[in-house]
Amino acid sequence: MTRPLVTLDASDPLAVLRGLEAALAGGPALLPVAEDVPALPTPPPADVPQRVALVVETSGSTGTGKRVALSADALLAGAAAADQALGGPGSWVLALPTHYIAGLNVLTRSIVAGTTPSLVAPGHFTAEAFADAADRLEVGPAAPRRYTSLVPVQLARVLDDARATAALARFDAVLVGGQATPAPLRERARAAGIRAVTTYGASETSGGCVYDGVPFGTVQTRLVDGELWLHGPMLAEGYLGDDTRTASTFVVDDGLRWYRTGDAATTSDGVVRVLGRLDDVVISGGEKVPLGLVERHVRELPGQDAAVVTRRSSDEWGEVPVVVTATPIDLQRVRDHVQAALGRAARPAAVVLVDALPMLSAGKPDRRAIHALVDDE
């Protein structure tokens, strides 16, 4: 059994909302796309398996293109577990693109709550536009809570504006994800009275399924050779047109179906700490250096909450970490700070100063473009 796959322009969030609502009710499956995002090499199919309600295209910041197929059951299970973890259904401000899973999650949770999200004006995200959307947000007895979902750079812009900060402080929870949230940014939010909830997840898990390091609902975690695996009702069906990738990424073990995240992690007392991509480890002078962990410590430094750490070839060491930032900082200060936390091998070899960091439309750093900047130096 199949059903048609309808492609919609993600620049019209309300049209995507209506399309998603129909898909969740058993109508045509939905594929939201953005005009400013490069198309995948192959066109999407006209029809998809009956269980598929939503298809999310993603190239990621480092990987190759894929189409993640999600069922209505997975999306609704994730929404229900998230509502329970946050304290109940609510009304949402939509500040993220609706061709990415985080923006689609806002729509799904709005549909479940029977509310219509308040939209941040399209275009470049500004604190003023967010404050305006927050002022327009309507709450009612059935969904009395206020929620939004942001990426770290958006949260930082809000915190730089007094009116937007005051508006955000009225929210019951602010989901912050898409990338690691620097500790200084979390502290700023907390000091401003904002309940920021750091999230971890992927399109393959119907979005965030780990809040503040704790899996919600019936989500289970496992570490296999240092890689984080996730299990739960929110897992995707797989990848459209790519059975090989589906089989290698979604595996059955002990009778349970697991998603291999490709991320390195540690767990302690039930709390998950993601260290970065397993394939984003450099061997520097014979020692393994996780670039994501180096980046996390660099972002602890003042003004560096958006800095990116990438790799560069070295005749002496093999590969070395390099910091790319739009905010000037002394290299020795960076090296001393990282060495104190991670050792000599993790010290960045250079700081590359740029006018602006290349970004993806979802607000994440475009790591391939950033790596190219370092290669061109």
Rank of each mutant, 00 (worst) to 15 (best):
G178F: 06
G343I: 06
S268P: 03
P321N: 01
L155I: 06
V274P: 05
P4L: 03
R157D: 12
V289H: 02
V351C: 01
R18T: 11
H371L: 13
K364P: 02
G343K: 02
A356Q: 12
P43N: 02
A25K: 13
L30K: 05
P122G: 02
V93Q: 10
Y259G: 08
T325N: 00
L301Y: 01
D279E: 13
P4G: 05
V272C: 04
G88M: 05
P215Y: 09
D315M: 08
M1Y: 10
Y211L: 15
T108D: 12
A340R: 13
L86V: 11
R145Y: 05
L137P: 00
G262S: 11
R296I: 01
G27V: 04
V93G: 04
E287L: 15
A362M: 06
A173F: 09
S203W: 09
G90R: 05
L94M: 14
E237L: 02
S59T: 13
T42D: 15
P141E: 15
A345K: 01
D279N: 10
L40S: 07
G177Y: 03
L94N: 10
G60P: 04
T205E: 09
P4R: 03
A169Q: 07
M234T: 10
V272Y: 03
Q84E: 14
P144L: 02
E138Q: 15
T181P: 05
G27F: 00
D243F: 01
T126D: 11
G226Q: 14
V224N: 04
G177E: 08
W229I: 11
R3N: 12
V281E: 01
A82W: 12
D336M: 01
D242E: 03
P348T: 00
T246W: 00
L293Y: 02
G285W: 00
D336V: 03
G232L: 02
D280K: 05
G276S: 05
R257C: 12
A69R: 04
R257G: 06
L373M: 06
L24P: 04
H337Q: 03
P215A: 07
S248Y: 09
R277V: 14
V252H: 02
R299K: 03
R335L: 04
V68K: 06
T325P: 00
Y259C: 09
E316V: 14
Y100L: 09
E138I: 15
A196W: 11
A340L: 09
V224Q: 10
L5M: 12
P184L: 10
A173V: 06
A77N: 05
T62M: 15
Q304Y: 00
P184N: 08
A39N: 06
Q154C: 03
A95D: 07
P45F: 07
L301W: 01
W258T: 06
P358S: 01
V338Y: 00
T310R: 01
S268H: 15
I111H: 12
H337W: 06
L360R: 11
G238W: 04
R67V: 08
E227R: 07
M1D: 13
R163D: 04
N105V: 07
D355F: 00
P290H: 01
V158Q: 03
Y259T: 14
E319F: 02
G292V: 04
P97F: 11
V93T: 07
R170A: 07
L150S: 05
P13C: 13
V48S: 13
